[in-house]
Amino acid sequence: MQNALSIAILGGGPGGLTLARILHLHGIKATVFERDTHALARPQGGSLDMHPETGQRALQLAGLHDAFQALARYGDQGNRAYAPDGALLFDDANLDGDTPEIDRSQLRQILLNALPSGCVRWDQKVEALRPLPDGRHALVSAGVEDEAFDLVVGADGASSIVRPLVSSAQPAYEGVTIFELGIDDIDQRYPALAALSGHGKMFVKGSNTLLAAQRNSNAHVRLYAAIRMPLDAVRSHSITSPDTRRWLASTFAGYAAPFRELIEVATLLAVRPMLALPVGHRWANQPGLTLIGDAAHLMSPFGGEGANGAMADAADLALLLARGGEWREAVLAYETMMFPRAEAAAFGAGQGLRGAVAADQPAHIARHMQQGISPRPDK
């Protein structure tokens, strides 16, 4: 009976691919519909820290512990905090930590390598879902014959097309925009700048601004320039605009010279307004539909729970479906399990964003780090 269940997963990020992989291990076929034309069609973002109870657990259940360990960077878990004038406020190499880093692109490739041929359908942007009289849903895509599935899982992020079918909630702007930048081969090209973040993450907190640097693999450093600003002002900026580069430089003009230089030499990769669903977002169970990851609980990245939460969702849903019995009851059980976990994570992420990009003193960041809380600007 399980194998007769037809499952469509919309979105080939960490959550969707983890779900497909664990289902595959239990003999349950799923098809992943991904809008990208291939795995590296667009920037995948920076490094992720995999938490033991969520991301690492999901990789264990996916049978990918060894593949993860081969790439996990336990030496890149350090945290540093500076004042805008360059004074070092906090420094911890965190060599005993258990949240190792891995590049998002590497994690995605590990999952892709573990899926059977044809499981992921690239260049398949699903535009709508059409309910059918038998309770299934047909996926509507341009130029592709509609296919019907018993269960459609929205792993399709902030702009999910599945979410409106189960909930009226809409992501709202949280008042902060992150300008994402990158520096390649930083150790050879800019050794003095590379030393600022060392092996891990660096945070510099100003008034309603935050500059974070994060070491990735292959001597790449990802920068996150976070600024509290109106949404209307965000719309005037783009990664190709010289005016945006000049505006960024002026916004961080009060920072010490090395921090300004980081921004000057980096390539602008993305402009990301921070959006979030309401804390405690829930919906009434809808037969044949459910959500995981950002589609279900989009939140501020200042908590590092994005990919970890999505993978935890995927693991829980897959295991419940694999137990057998009535699959609709398994979906309901998953949602009941996920809602409180996501609420707690979203509450913490919101607090993290409000504290990290605020008008108070830079010592706020150091205090959080001393308490073991790292205000990650990525997911």
Rank of each mutant, 00 (worst) to 15 (best):
G11A: 08
A356H: 00
H237K: 07
A195R: 11
S117Q: 10
L19G: 12
Q77E: 13
H368K: 14
A172L: 09
L112C: 03
A342G: 05
L23C: 12
Y334P: 00
V265L: 00
W283Q: 12
L115E: 12
L23V: 07
L25W: 12
P133F: 15
R35Q: 12
A366Q: 00
E174K: 12
D36N: 06
S159L: 10
A213I: 04
A342I: 03
L115K: 11
G157W: 01
D36P: 04
D123F: 13
I178P: 13
G75I: 01
P191D: 12
L193P: 01
L89I: 11
S250V: 14
P301Q: 12
G157R: 01
V204P: 09
K125F: 13
V153G: 04
R104M: 05
D85W: 13
T18C: 15
L23I: 12
I161P: 00
W283G: 14
L211S: 08
Q77A: 11
I9E: 10
G182I: 12
A233W: 08
R222I: 02
A346G: 09
G303Q: 11
A314N: 03
D134A: 07
G350P: 13
E335W: 01
G118T: 13
Q69S: 15
M311P: 00
A225I: 08
D91S: 13
I263A: 00
A342H: 11
E101G: 14
G254C: 00
G280V: 09
A72W: 07
A276I: 04
L248S: 05
R35W: 08
D92K: 06
L89M: 09
L40G: 15
